[in-house]
Amino acid sequence: MKAKIINLALAEISVLIAVSIAEKSPMALLVPVNLLYAIAIIPIALLIMNRNPFGFPTFIVLMALATAKALANSEIFYSLLDAVYYLGFRGLAEYVESMFSAYESKPDIIPLLSIVVLFSMAQIIWNIEKKLEKWNIEIGYSIAVLGIVGTAIILFYPIVLSIHPHGFPLLFAGLIGVSAILIGISLIVRN
């Protein structure tokens, strides 16, 4: 039961973040802003239906709202619009293009990161609650550690992302390095 309540809270916070991003994206032109807040009903409905209030369907809806702005920079998206234009729906293609081209700026990382981290936390809590109950372990310890780790990620991860030594993002350089080490170890073990 604790997991449901916590996940509901995390879901509602994520809804607020996602809607606040959507207000400044082409979504605001398609759907009235007040109506976007109605999404907050989804987690409550899922709770009443005895399901995870912050499951994958809720996350996909929120990510669609939060990352709609990213479509404005997507070549794939514009190529799809070209296809629509070529197929004869010229008016529609021109209208959508005019909507999105006005928002050609990069999405903010921190709100996006917050939604992803909150969703990851919700999934972890949902998965571990029953197991810990079975083992007679208080879930509070894990939630506290999860809260600390989640906050640390939201605070420090953007800083790591902002570091670009030699013009290349530190994160990706690190990932490439770790992958290379792992591949190297596996090759040595095989031989």
Binding site: S74, I76, F77, K106, V149, L161, L171
Partner: peptide, 26 residues
């Protein structure tokens, strides 16, 4: 998220996609 990041060619989404794995690295 990586899939969505590739479709939208967004560095931000791909960068954020790494965040869930950080929970595994504790």
């Amino acid at each position: 998220l990586i899939g969505w990041g590739i479709i939208t060619t967004s560095y931000e989404i791909i960068a954020v996609s790494i965040a869930p794995l950080l929970f595994l690295a504790v």
